[in-house]
Simulated assay, not measured.
Amino acid sequence: MPDHSCASARIVGVGQTPYEKRSDKAIQRLIFEAADAALTSAGLAMRQVDGIALTCFILPPDNVTTVAEHFGIEARFLFQGVYGGASSIIGMMHAARAIRDGDAEVVLCVAADSFDVASHNQTLDNFNGSVRDYMSPFGFGGANGMFALHTRLYMERNGARREDFGKLAISQRENALQNPNALFKVPLTLDDYLNARQIADPLRLYDCVLPCVGADCVVMVSEKLARTLPGPKVRIAAGGEYHNFPAEDVYSLSAGWEGLSGRMYERAGLGPKDMHFAQLYDDYPVMEFIQLEGLQISPKGRTHEWIRAHDVTYRGDFPINTGGGQLSAGQAGAAGGMIGVVEAVTQLRGEAGARQVDCRRGLVSGYGMVAYGRGLSTSAAILERVD
């Protein structure tokens, strides 16, 4: 039977700021602009908001409570994500349960950051104790160095080639060219990909995200309120989170999606073949491979063969990251965990313009809290249009 712990809430609005390489705007301003756009999309006013689920790396010493103060919101529900790129989906599920239980009526689920390459690297050097104490002092190369090892291991263990990762990156760039808010505006060829500047062998330039400035937001409301609002509605059919999986096995090429996906599908009353797209957390192509396997879309260890057999552009048989993802639209820090949600909701509402796919439901996933050699936190959800 379908699970109803999250499904009674409705996503009724979506907003995103322009993605930029740099900006002088305060982080509170970016959060406000994304929230304001999402509320306008929903036909709601800021005074109606009584909950916030927020993720932002650079917000301290402020926090979600002081953001509520800045915006004049009397909040009954607050959530601050501490799970990196997995936080936004986790925050949405917490918000949905608060709405179900009558603890909130209108919740902003928002993520934002303002990074360039230098500030991003500085943040990662002090991301948590294990990175600060045992990796940064030895010039570990940041996340690029970590995920170069994952990429090399996947290639050596399973027989994947750089061309397989390249096909995914090139397809996402093709998607991004139809997204006016994507930072990358020119096509990516296989030759460009294979011969780009080396970053951390075997990773090259187009395997790595471009840190940037931006904010993303969706508005969640009660089913009762949703019925009074115009525009398409989306619900969370089911979702889940999983942390530190598998324990004590840093380079297993497994992650928490393996632990959560079976229960998620069972609770939704759906399966992988019922999905019309996937918006994956794409900090590196290899982690998209791991997500596709953990979410039961592709066979374990054979995703490179699956990629060769499928068209994952917005025109294809299984679209992935239809707005370009972080690899071609940009990674605005913590907003990297919300960009896929915003794209999924935009697609399900039929508002994606030239990159619109024929869809009723799809997957979103999150990944974050990089520690000693891997991300510790995973999340995923099935989003479905409600007619």
Rank of each mutant, 00 (worst) to 15 (best):
C6W: 09
S8E: 08
G13T: 10
G13R: 03
E20F: 00
K21Y: 14
R22Y: 13
R22P: 00
K25P: 01
Q28I: 06
L30C: 01
I31F: 08
D36L: 01
Q48W: 08
V49R: 06
P60M: 05
N63D: 14
A68N: 09
E69P: 00
H70D: 14
H70M: 12
Q80G: 03
S87C: 06
I89L: 07
G91Y: 07
A95K: 03
D116C: 09
N121Q: 10
G141Y: 14
G141V: 11
G145N: 06
H150A: 02
H150L: 09
L153V: 08
N158L: 03
E163I: 02
G166T: 03
S171Q: 11
Q172F: 11
A176P: 13
L177W: 06
Q178M: 15
N181L: 09
K185G: 05
V186P: 00
L205R: 10
C208E: 00
P211I: 09
E223K: 13
L229K: 05
P230N: 14
G231C: 11
F245G: 02
A247L: 13
E248A: 15
G256R: 05
G262Q: 15
Y265N: 03
E266D: 06
D274A: 12
F277R: 01
A278H: 11
A278Y: 07
Y284S: 01
P285I: 10
M287K: 12
K300S: 04
G301D: 02
E305S: 13
W306I: 05
H310R: 07
Y314H: 15
G316T: 07
G323D: 14
G325N: 04
S328A: 15
A329L: 08
A334I: 00
E343P: 00
A344V: 04
A344T: 03
R355D: 11
Q356V: 09
V357A: 09
M369N: 14
A371N: 14
T378G: 09
T378D: 10
A380W: 12
L383I: 02
E384D: 10
R385G: 13
R385T: 09
